[in-house]
């Protein structure tokens, strides 16, 4: 591996010793009159890797998008690093510290790969262009794609685009990374290159919340697996417990479908 993910915090000796980074309490979310999150409570500690799984429509994306304020909610609180995400004044500042990777990559098509990665460091972090370029190149090396720096997103494969999206988020040096099904839009042969990148990132000590159907990946990197169904957290625990000793019929049914 050429570059390295240098995250501020390395994984501590015991996960519980780490401070809480994301604190979600009793979250209710409605779309119109339809309730899609029912009293969801979830905490994520620094350097922890939480994988969220569950059937389609169970509210996984909605939950993750509530963490960086892409969705509003009707009841409950979301604290990120002790700051209330529902404070509109703070929102841009908090978002700058939370990286997000989308299913559809959402790279800016009119900017080169390098410009994509430099944009927020320059405009939000007020970094000099030279500094931002260096930083962007560092993370492009980390995701092993520095040779594509001057290409436009439309010229890259899906896997390459997703790795650029990860580099773009990392260039903001986020405290936390959110992933919403980062490999679901990829052709099968490209899934691995993105998962490998995520594994590297996890090993660097980054705090990660990841929605995914990749159960092998979940087993490998997750400290905690959260199973959601119909807008509720049904079960949560270490992968071994979730996979090998599911407590509810719903989880058992879900797991039997996944395998």
């Amino acid at each position: 591996m050429s570059g390295s993910f240098d995250t501020a915090t390395r994984p501590g000796p015991a996960a519980t010793a780490q401070p809480i980074l994301v604190d979600i309490l009793d979250l209710d979310k409605y779309y119109g009159s339809v309730q899609v999150l029912h009293g969801v409570t979830l905490t994520v500690r620094r350097a922890e890797k939480v994988v969220i799984c569950g059937p389609s429509g169970s509210g996984k994306s909605t939950l993750v998008r509530c963490i960086n304020g892409l969705e509003t909610f009707q009841a409950g609180t979301v604290l990120v690093d002790r700051t209330d995400i529902a404070q509109p004044r703070e929102l841009d500042r908090i978002r700058a510290d939370i990286g997000m990777v989308f299913q559809q990559f959402n790279l800016f098509p009119h900017m080169t790969v390098l410009e994509n990665c430099m944009f927020a460091p320059v405009w939000v972090r007020k970094m000099s262009r030279a500094q931002a370029r260096e930083l962007a190149m560092h993370y492009l090396e980390t995701v092993r794609i520095p040779d594509k720096a001057d290409r436009y997103p439309g010229q890259l494969s899906g896997g390459q685009q997703q790795r650029v999206a990860i580099a773009r988020a990392l260039a903001m040096k986020p405290k936390l990374m959110l992933f919403d099904e980062p490999t679901s839009a990829l052709d099968p042969e490209m899934v691995k290159e993105v998962l490998d990148t995520l594994v590297d990132l996890a090993q660097s000590g980054m705090t990660m919340v990841c929605v995914t159907h990749e159960m092998g990946f979940a087993r490998q990197v997750a400290d905690r697996l959260v199973f959601m169904d119909q807008g509720r957290v049904v079960e949560a625990g270490p992968p071994a417990q979730i996979f090998d000793a599911p407590q509810t019929d719903r989880l058992r049914a879900f797991l039997s479908q996944m395998l």
Partner: peptide, 24 residues
């Protein structure tokens, strides 16, 4: 998704219009 990606990076709204959505 273009707007959301920029929001997620902490880019203020006026800048999103100017540099992300308007050019496209």
């Amino acid at each position: 998704g273009q707007r959301e990606a920029a929001w997620a990076l902490g880019v203020p709204r006026w800048l999103i219009v100017l540099r992300i959505t308007l050019p496209q």
